[in-house]
Design a protein around this nucleic acid. Structure first.
Lengths: 206, 206
DNA sequence: TAGAAAACTTGCAATTTCGGCAAGATTTGC
DNA sequence: GCAAATCTTGCCGAAATTGCAAGTTTTCTA
């Protein structure tokens, strides 16, 4: 968004991204316990101390990439045409994060990813990232609807419910062995929420 | 539920609760940074090492009390009459956790509580606790609806959305300075979700 | 109910993490 | 081009983390 990003800002952003990527790669390859902070720092060409200036833990570094992406949902919502109904805009904004990116080829996940995601510390950080993204989304929803973030529950309510539903959809997709795209799963989940989550017909769900 | 709880089990449960309570009390009184694990262990009459056998961190100990309560939601749902519509049962189960307990007298919250809840580590643990509670709720929903937890998204979808909405309601209530009961807030939020979260009328929300 | 088995608590010690501090390097703003 | 602000880094002490084994308590079984 802000294009007036100086050299310093850009460098920090790059270092941050590099560290996160390195953390993910190393942990997926070697396993959670066999990666030290020093390893990650070295892979990113910074000192161990600098790593710690960016992240408080290995887990936070790993979740950072997810966080960056999730935060973009709010901007995506702002980019939607003003005349579009709120729900349509929200659904479009959320699914936009997953479009286009085949991202991680399901077949290539050598269970290393599963193991890393199974790590309690990582799960915790992902929850935190989701919470942060939801807060950002709530701000964007408040702007779009003209509601007051402090007075009205609606923005945070919608944001958190959308976040939860997306998370459940991704989790379900992931659990079943990520084959096809995750987008339809998310879309379906959000449609169900928009409909008030009525009990599905016994046959309906596949 | 299980009444055949031996002496050992009961003691553990008690120690766990005592540690959590002590952690909360001390941190609220003295502030997060001025409470060591040793302080908490001492207050609960166990060794520091034992504390560590129960909890991995101060934050986890603090969130434990919340977790215990949140986990009860699932049992509460199982206790609802079978003929009751799912949504009614869910709403009743969730609000039951907050009924009866004036719990913490708003006026008595000397901002100590706010500060502890503001601690990132604590927030993280509360998110984890909520996630665990949602998983338990999902199991109970699957039982009640006869759906398959692995095949169908619905149980986890409903559980996570309900959890998110409740959390948003509590957060809103808390942020506005907890005056009256939180129950109506939660009820209102869940009603909105059940209605599909339509954009509220400008005047409607107070 | 005695005695063995299992589970829990605890202290100790080796490692690792955590945070603050200050010196040196880089970027920014005027 | 200079001064201020910011970032990186090494270093260090305090605190946290983990494994291990010995001592206790509870549970199980004959």
């Amino acid at each position: 968004m802000t294009d007036d990003e100086g050299l310093r800002e850009r460098k920090k952003r790059e270092t941050r991204a590099t560290l996160s990527q390195a953390a993910i790669r190393l942990c997926v390859q070697r396993g959670w316990d066999d990666v030290s902070l020093a390893d990650i720092a070295e892979a990113a060409n910074v000192s161990e101390r600098t790593f710690r200036n960016y992240f408080t833990s290995k887990a936070e570094a790993i979740a950072a990439t997810h966080l960056e992406r999730a935060l973009r949902t709010a901007d995506e919502l702002r980019a939607r045409p003003a005349h579009e109904p709120l729900w349509d805009a929200v659904i479009a904004a959320v699914t936009a994060q997953f479009d286009g990116t085949t991202d991680i080829e399901p077949a290539a996940w050598p269970s290393g990813v599963r193991r890393v995601f199974a790590e309690p510390a990582v799960r915790g950080e992902i929850l935190k990232a989701n919470a942060a993204a939801q807060e950002a989304l709530a701000v964007a929803i408040a702007e779009r609807t003209g509601l007051d973030l402090e007075r009205d529950v609606y923005p945070r309510l919608l944001a958190s419910v959308v976040g939860a539903a997306s998370g459940a959809a991704v989790g379900h997709w992931f659990r079943g062995g990520p084959r096809d795209s995750v987008v339809p799963h998310i879309h379906s989940a959000l449609d169900q929420v928009r409909a008030g989550l009525p009990l599905p017909l016994p046959e309906a769900d596949r």
